[in-house]
Design a protein around this nucleic acid. Structure first.
Lengths: 204, 204
DNA sequence: CACCTGTTTTTTGTAAACAATAAAACATAA
DNA sequence: TTATGTTTTATTGTTTACAAAAAACAGGTG
């Protein structure tokens, strides 16, 4: 049998979560917007059960905020102090990942990362900034997962999402692509310090 | 009207979550134990709905691990590398909290913290180590909440719980009380550096 | 005996009805 | 007009029933 890259199967809930995250990141769902379970259920053609699960999940990720018997709404922007803390925490995690990956990245990995960069550039060219954000995240996610699996992704992901809330309008400059190019090239050349520097420069 | 400290009202789900956390921390629910929704529902005298919510919540906290259509089980111990990372992250958060609290702690706060220390000592004397853990956490939680509210607590809490999994059997030494005493005294004297040092020494 | 295959059983995922709580609208009295 | 208390409405929390998936089991085949 041919070795095939496993195609990612997403559960219903994961797909809905993904969609809501996009809506929040894109600004379609502005901070403090109240989410109505019934409406969401109708929108996605489901019952309220799975919707409630997704809401709980996004609440734990910090994108939503829920109060007992009062429903959930889109969280507001982070206090600047907390945002600085989060940047520091996320850097800490990503630098850890880089360090772990020192010698374990294969040619296949580099190819995957190259492909992601291509997608990133394409998203820019299409001016699809929601997609840019998603691809950007997927680049980092690739490294984080490779370094620490689901466990590490789970502690990292909330920071990324929470921070994105604060950067609604991504600086449209394609500096984003360049920054990730720097990271990838440093990794390819095996220069960990350079990679670490590039990562630090990218997370801000 | 007399100023009264607001009594904490816990939702049904929060109480169940609390109980399950205790069971996991105490070791009653060992790593890799599979949780059955129906059994849990019967144990707590509820239907499966709220139980599922709690399971999802504890999964996000890292105490449980869930797979689609396969249920949830108690998470296993952290890889030592990841544990080191988590210690570093948690220190980062708690040092931030100390820094924020520099000038904002009141006499009431100090009294509250003193009371917690008294509870901690009492739990030790009773050799109720599950309670010790809970009170220990509540001490830190007090500071974290004071410094950054629910937002900060939410990013901090998972680290604490996840780390506790690794320290099943708390070193029974009452050094724990002393360590927290050091933190509190440093805070009282307004010596931030000393407080920071004491916190670092306590998180390990 | 190992291995595969189809069936039964158990468990989780989803849907829909019901109960309880909170928000809103309204009426009443100071 | 404002404040308070009541009724109505809307929304969330919970239960129950049903559908789908996974696990356990049994029988047949090499």
């Amino acid at each position: 049998m041919v070795a095939k890259r496993p195609t990612k199967i997403l559960s219903v809930k994961d797909q809905i979560a993904e969609q809501l995250r996009s809506d929040i990141i894109s600004g379609e769902l502005a901070p403090n917007t109240k989410l109505n379970e019934k409406e969401l259920a109708e929108r996605f053609g489901l019952s309220r059960g799975p919707i409630r699960d997704v809401i709980l999940q996004l609440t734990k990720e910090g994108l939503l905020i829920s109060k007992n018997n009062c429903g959930a709404s889109v969280n507001s922007l982070l206090d600047p102090k907390l945002q600085k803390l989060m940047i520091s925490l996320r850097r800490n995690i990503e630098l850890f990942a880089i360090d772990q990956l020192k010698d374990s990245l294969t040619e296949d990995d580099f190819q995957d990362l190259e492909n992601i960069l291509t997608e990133l550039q394409a998203a820019f060219d299409n001016e699809d900034y929601t997609e840019v954000t998603k691809v950007d995240i997927s680049f980092h996610n690739y490294l984080i997962y490779k370094a620490g699996g689901d466990e590490l992704v789970n502690i990292w992901y909330p920071y990324v999402m929470r921070m994105r809330l604060n950067y609604k309008r991504l600086t449209t400059s394609s500096a984003c692509v360049d920054e990730h190019r720097l990271i990838l090239d440093a990794l390819k050349s095996g220069d960990i310090n350079k990679a670490a520097k590039a990562v630090k420069a990218n997370i801000k």
